[in-house]
Design a protein around this nucleic acid. Structure first.
Lengths: 133, 133
DNA sequence: AAATAGTCTTACGTAAAAGTCAATCAGCAA
DNA sequence: TTGCTGATTGACTTTTACGTAAGACTATTT
């Protein structure tokens, strides 16, 4: 039982199976410069770092971020810039994105509450049916 | 100062202004059977209930749900069915959707934590710069 | 009466994010 | 050698969620 990070390389199909996506999708992300697998001859070899990046991309997708937005988020994870202005700009961007995320979390919490309510109603009706039998 | 629910009708442009969307978008949602404004002659009149529905749709969009998924969610808000099998099915669907939402919330929390970390790094670097001056 | 603002339908256009298909190539087993 | 299996590139297609433009109608204001 090897941890993914112990493995040196992954093939493209291994990743498609692990994450339930197509090879086209992975190559698309490479075209979009989101990941940069190395090559042996022409075939792509994905390192654990590439795999982790892919996980971040897919997480972004689940949250409804576009490729462009995901690109922005990934950029924030790189080494912080050395220049003060750039640094302040990055802090601003981080703050903005965090604001969006808080909004989304609030949206989620509201929706969950509502669904809980729907479920309660259903269970209530179900109980009525059981009694009436 | 009238509360939106006190108002009897909204025009399409009032809603576009309130929510920052286009008339095309609203008409599109009607085409997709997500909302059903009434008509006076040919022009649409939106009741407070239509407005609330629109808010639910936009919340779904913020969360990255497709129109089809939003349609499913809205369907859950209608009167629960009377038949037991249907009722159980609905409960299952609600449970599924809630699972998705919990996943999203976890994704969000992770991302926020990471962004907090990025910000910390930035502030650290900024402090170093200030000292070095 | 003429202009302005808002609304309608219909229809074509478009950007994003892949899906799909064809032709090709490398490595390995039978 | 033949035949798979899995990989590649390139090009065309599709789906989703609207944008945009044309042409017509209505109500109100000047």
């Amino acid at each position: 039982m090897k941890s993914p990070d112990a493995k040196e390389f992954f093939t493209i199909t291994e990743l498609t199976r692990e994450f339930g996506i197509s090879t086209r999708t992975i190559r698309f992300y490479e075209d979009e410069n989101l990941i940069h697998p190395v090559r042996r001859g022409r075939t792509r070899l994905f390192r654990p770092a590439d795999r982790r990046l892919l996980m971040l991309i897919l997480r972004g997708k689940r949250l409804g971020f576009s490729i462009a937005e995901i690109r922005e988020i990934l950029a924030m994870y790189k080494e912080p810039p050395g220049e003060e202005g750039q640094l302040r700009l990055l802090i601003q961007k981080v703050s903005d994105k965090r604001g969006q995320l808080h909004q989304k979390r609030q949206d989620i919490d509201e929706t969950i509450t509502e669904l809980d309510d729907v479920e309660k109603q259903c269970l209530g009706r179900l109980a009525e049916l059981a009694v009436g039998t």
